[in-house]
Design a protein around this nucleic acid. Sequence first.
DNA 1: ATAGGGTTAG
Length: 815
Amino acid sequence: MRVIPISLLSHVRGLIRRGPSSRWYVVPALSRTNITISHSEHVKEGTFDYKSLELNEIGVLRVLNSMKDDPYLALSFLKRIEGNVALPSVQAYATVIRIVCGWGLDQKLDTFLVELVRKGDAGRGFSVMELLNAIGEMEQSLVLLIRVSTALVKAYANLELFEEAIDIFFRTYHSLGRAPDIKVLSVLMNRMIASGRTDMVVGVFWEIERLGLYVDAHTYVLVVQALCRNDDKEGVDKLLIRLLNSETRNPCVFYLKFIEGLCLNQMASMAYLLLQPLREVNILVDMSDLGIAYRRVVRGLCNEMRIEDAEKAFLDMEEHGIDPDVYVYSAIIEGHRKTMNIPKAFDIFNKMVEKGKRINCVIGSSILQCCCQMGNFSGAYDLFKEFRELNIPLDRVCYNVAFDALGKLGKVEEAIELFREMTGKGIAPDVINYTTLIGGCCLQGKCSDAFDLMIEMDGSGKTPDIVIYNVLAGGLARNGLSQEALETLKLMEDRGVKPTYVTHNMVIEGLIVAGKLDKAEAFYESLEHKSRENDASMVKGYCEAGCLDQAFERFIRLEFPLPKSVYFTLFTSLCAEKNYISKAQDLLDRMWELGVKPEKSMYGKLIGAWCRVNNVRKARQFFEILVTKEIIPDLFTYTIMINTYCRLNELKQAYALFQDMKRRDVKPDVVTYTVLLNSNPELDMKREMEAFDVKPDVVLYTIMINRYCQLNDVKKAYALFKDMKRREIVPDVVTYTVLLKNNPELDLTREMKAFDVKPDVFYYTVLIDWQCKIGDLKEAKGIFDQMIESGVDPDAAPYTALIAGMGLYVRRSHL
DNA sequence: ATAGGGTTAG
């Protein structure tokens, strides 16, 4: 009998592998080999002494069986002979699987099966079904088989072999009368969705439904997700109806999970849709369950930025006697903040306060952020002080927003003071706190303070991250300290924080804004990989520094498209400068050339720019270009053009354009009509406006009143004035000024007070003017003083009126 | 248990 040691076998295998079908060569050869095993001989403290091993197929099985108390050993043994000998038999695999399962090592089983599946039938010499059969022959109980099937489905799913996964799933059910663990369905479906095979998800689901298998809530969520991706509204309806009518073992738990799952998968609207019938049919009857569901839904809606829906659900839940918790309030406030509806965020906050809810530091910092987002930094700081006085426990986030606000107000010293107060209270600062402070210092040019803070942070053992380095490097550059900025880059690199293009951009833009154009260019040139973001930054830097020529020149020589925001920045800068408007137009041409679609607002902006400098011809030219490109100008563009024609008194053109926009289905709004009527009060637009459902506003009424006044038709003017009030359109100070100017003897003071309309400079000027004209200089001066007293800042006009009045007075007294 | 803060970019 020949005995082949394993080490030798590996050489043999190398030779054999050259043959076309190695397997059939080796197995018979091996079966002739013999083995002698003594358990104690080759097991040494958990490792296997392979060298002493000699084996054949039956021997392998014997060895494996002897390892049933050590699954890891069994696994590594199998792996070893996989690599060295002929392919192990299906029994060998089955044995190992039994051992691994017996020890409950599910994860090990999973990875083992993934590898096994990956090999393919040819690679292992038997099919997966053969393996299952082999296991079935060894094992009486179904439990093991089910577990292996489950793991197989998972393995196939992970390898995106969906057909096979489905096949095993249903085959198991049909041959054993029991399905694999239903949880594996969510793994499978998850994978299918990730690969875009939503059709398969739905197919599998309906088949499972047909078989009457119990499916968990998470799987339902995935099916809904798949149906939504398929845009299959009917399917969703069918599913929900099916769900509501089905008997579930523990409906409340199930539905809560389902609702939660929907909310976690961007389908909070559907969750809300489901919540209501569930409440009505008393499935969610327990107040605490209903509360959980409602809170989830509201938070989900907020996360999806469906803030209006969230508010609706919020009101609904209050109506049903459920108190929103602090997390719900927080979500709604954040939702409003993120959608830039700051007043609404404050509304909710005030509502909380009114209800006597305790404000915590999270809500506090949210609301402070709201102030900052409005640009009201001092308001933020005031509010912070208020919180502090109310003894609301404040944490480092809250403090951070507060001293960030101070920094942005230019009060770095106070910011640092507040920071010291925080640390004094025992609140440990983090890297973000330091970043905020350093940013604030750099903003005020206090770079050495920034350095000190960096050193202080280092001393406290905090590890600087990419952001703080970026802020520091950018801040130094912005203060013209190019050397130091570059050193910071080196420093961070040395410390294992690799600068990114963001870092580079901050330095680039900083240097340019600081006027260090050469340094910026040199830095740009020094970059190893120049990304288009870097090019964009050069352009943006030049824009911010007001170097439009450089910005434009740099931009125009780039052969590839840049991120869209750059075009916008450059374009806006160019449009704002009288002499660069044609360059702005060049930019649009260039975008078209590069295949970048300009934002629609850019067209309007350019036309607006031409109109602003009264070059209606250029505006019109560009307008026509749009037409040839089949781009329909929007309402604003039309209106601004019409306005320009009106201003230049080319009324025919204005009117033609007006007809043109209606022909193209661009609906005029109240501004359009205001513009037209302002220059041509003879037009009768009443019926048309009604047809378009355009309601006149204060401005429209005011210009109409003004027109009639100018035509000396005071009666009509006054009738309009009454009419607007009848329609509950509140006159503003301009309306009153117009009226007063044409009927100086009117006393409008009382009415204005009633409407809470405060007189402004113009109004006072008209009053002063009139008093001067009738020669009551004293009264005129009195009105002037009254104006100052009421806090209205005079511009040149009231002075001019007074002086003119004095002149008139002098002349009069000479007569 | 679930929430909020610093650069840029979008």
